Structures are given as structure tokens and as C-alpha cells.
Amino acid sequence: MGAIDMEMNKVNDDGVVSLKHILTGHQKPVFTISWSPDNRQLLTCGMEEVIRRWDVSTGECLHIYEKAGLGNISCGWFPDGKRVISGLTDKSICIWDLDGKESECWKGQRTLKISDVAITSDGKRIITMLRETTILMLDREAKVERLIEEEQTIISFSLSRDSKFLLISLVNQEIHLWSIDGDYKLIMKYKGHTRSRFIIRSCFGGFKQAFIASGSEDSQVYIWHRGNGDLLESLPGHSGAVNCVSWNPANPHMLASASDDRTIRIWGLNRVDLKHKETYSNGVIHQCNGGTSLSK
């Protein structure tokens, strides 16, 4: 089986995008991509395959995470960047150190066969999908479980940097924003992208995470204003369904997207004069530019 090429494009100081690396190694479509907290590494996960950890500056694959007889279905970083968490095809959740040594594992019905996985910024709560319409919050220390119930089937989810909000993508082509700080509450809905057959992932991003981005089956990346739900941009460029997006945690002007076309694209903000306005919503105050466009 041939290797899969993943293109990484660099945004230069003049706003021009150039090819930086082609990451080769995955044997199946790339389903998950995740930046490390320090912005220097990437985790990528193939469809029921291995997890690969990459050096962004050199394009070198630093480590491969795998478990005999099982495939990985999702991956993510611990907040300290020193451990990796993943969901596996036997519905278990595992934690590895960077060298691949397994440190913790929760077996049994702790995740669906196809599921995202996340951990809160304090490292205490693991978040995953328990059932098709249910998100599980698992407290590692107190061994307490809390649930978020949706009416529609959940496709994927993403945790905000401050661990106070959860973004849930649904089968009905809606993305829901939940507050999980204290009482759980649905506070915003985003619409416009296309999803009918595949798993499509969304994320928070931009300055103070004032934007929401999502992949789409129409080969585009969609970007909304987090506070008011307005659709700001739809970015063409991929030639297949965009499965996953991940906003750079250190550079608010950089966004990565992974596609069925077997490439990963890195998007950068155009250099424009920002028209700032304060927006009060979703429990935060942030400055944003609703007219900012992105370059390929």
C-alpha cells in the first residue's frame, strides 16, 4: 500500500504561502491532526491506524504510537505536551509518554469506535463520546462521570483552550457550543458547512479563540464568528472532503486542515488593517475582525 503525502505550506512574512514539508508515512486517510502546546510538533492519526508525532520544523517523524492488534481512532496532547492520549478501536482510552510507554488505560465502554478524545487544561478530566448522542466527562482523580446529552447524533467535538467550552459537531450539519464551566449549557449554534457521510471535525481558534473553524464534505474550510455565529469565510483548495481542522495554539493566524485528498494544508491570515470591536459573548470579552480573510 502506498504512503500518503501530507503537504505543509509555510506562510512567509509577505503573506505568500510556500510548500514547507511533505510528511509521508500514513497508509490510510488522515482523520485527526493536533498541534502540540509549544507549536513545535504535530500528532496525526490515520483511520484505525497508527499515531505519528512530527517535528514541524524538519518534517521528521519522531515517534509512532501503536498497540498490537488494535487501531487508533483519535489522538490529542496533554496540556504539558509530555504525554499523548488516544481512543482505540476496542473502545478503550490510553495515555502514553512521548517515548511510547503506556502510563494509563481505561478499558470497557469508555468511548465509541469512532470518537474524539480530549483532556482539560488541568489534566484532571478526560472527555470522550460515551454513546451516539452523549459526551462523557471522566474525572481521573475523583472517578466521577458527568454527561452532555444531545438530541442528534454526535460526529465530533473540540475543547476550548481554557477548558470552559465544548464544540460539538452533529449529524444534522450543525455545530453546537456548550459551556461546561459549572452547569452545562448550550449557548450557540453554527451552520453552513456540508456533512452527509463522513466524520467532520471543528475547532476553536484565532485571537482569544474568537473564531470557529470546521471541515466540510464540499472540500472547503468554513470559519464563523464565535460570538454571534456569523459565517465569515469558506476556503477552497482541497480536492476531497476536509475531515479535520486544527488552529495553531501559538500563532492565531495559522490554521491546519486535513483532507481525503491525502494532504494537510496550512492556512495563514492575509495582512490587513484590522477593524477591532469588542464583542461580549460566550462568557468572554474579545476583540475580533469579522471581515478578515484567509489566504491559501
Results as ranks from 00 to 15, higher is better:
Asp162Val: 09
Ile175Cys: 14
Lys208Asp: 13
Ser214Trp: 10
Ser163Asn: 03
Leu167Pro: 11
Arg271Ser: 11
Ser163Glu: 04
Ser214Glu: 06
Val221His: 00
Ser196Pro: 01
Gly182Cys: 11
Ile200Gly: 02
Lys208Met: 08
Phe198Thr: 07
Leu177Trp: 12
Val242Asp: 12
Arg201Glu: 11
Ile212Lys: 12
Asn228Cys: 00
Ile168Cys: 02
Glu233Tyr: 10
Gln209Asn: 14
Phe165Cys: 07
Leu232Ser: 01
Gly240Gln: 07
Phe207His: 11
Trp267Asp: 14
Asn282Gly: 05
Asp162Cys: 05
Ile266Phe: 05
Ile266His: 02
Gly237Met: 05
Asn172Cys: 02
Gly283Pro: 02
Gln152Pro: 03
Arg226Leu: 14
Leu231Cys: 03
Glu151Thr: 15
Glu278Ile: 12
Asn243Glu: 06
Phe211Ile: 04
Ser281Gly: 10
Phe211Asn: 11
Asn243Met: 04
Glu151Gln: 15
Ser202Trp: 08
Ile180Thr: 08
Thr194Ser: 09
Ile264Thr: 14
Ala210Gln: 13
Thr153Val: 01
Ile212Arg: 14
His176Asp: 03
Pro249Lys: 05
Gly229Phe: 12
Ser239Lys: 15
Lys189Ala: 10
Arg271Glu: 10
Lys189Gly: 03
Asn270Arg: 08
Ala241Pro: 05
Gly240Glu: 09
Arg197Pro: 00
Ala213Gln: 01
Ser158Asn: 01
Phe157Tyr: 12
Trp267Pro: 14
Gly240Ile: 08
Val272Lys: 09
Leu177Lys: 09
Thr194Val: 15
His193Arg: 14
Leu166Ile: 15
Asp260His: 13
Gly206Arg: 02
His225Ser: 13
Asp273Val: 08
Ile266Pro: 00
Ser239Leu: 10
Leu177Met: 13
Ser234Arg: 13
Ile285Tyr: 07
Gly229Val: 08
Ile187His: 05
Trp224Gly: 01
Tyr184Val: 11
Tyr184His: 12
Asp261Glu: 12
Gly240Leu: 06
Leu170Arg: 14
Ile154Glu: 03
Asn270Trp: 06
His225Leu: 11
Val245Trp: 02
His225Phe: 08
Arg161Ile: 09
Glu217Tyr: 07
Ala250Gly: 06
Leu269Ala: 01
Ala213Asn: 01
Asp218Lys: 00
Leu231Asn: 00
Pro252Gln: 04
Arg197Trp: 09
Glu233His: 13
Asn270Asp: 04
Ser202Tyr: 10
Phe198Lys: 13
Tyr184Gly: 01
His176Asn: 10
Ser169Tyr: 02
Ser281Phe: 00
Ile199Asn: 04
His286Gln: 02
Lys208Asn: 14
His253Ile: 03
Asp162Met: 07
Asp181Ala: 12
Asn282Tyr: 02
Leu186His: 15
Ile200Gln: 04
Gly206Asp: 03
Phe211Trp: 06
Asn282Leu: 04
Ala213Asp: 02
Arg265Asn: 04
Leu159Ser: 03
Ala241Met: 05
Ser196Gly: 11
Pro236Lys: 13
Leu170Cys: 11
Lys185Met: 08
Trp267Glu: 12
Asp260Thr: 05
Ser257Asp: 11
Arg265Trp: 01
Gly229Pro: 07
His238Asn: 07
Ser214Ile: 08
Val284Cys: 02
Ser160His: 10
Leu269Ile: 00
Ile285Val: 14
Ala250His: 05
Ser281Gln: 03
Arg161Glu: 13
Tyr280Pro: 06
Pro249Asn: 07
Leu231Arg: 06
Lys208Cys: 09
Arg201Asp: 05
Ser169Glu: 07
Ala210Lys: 14
Val245Pro: 01
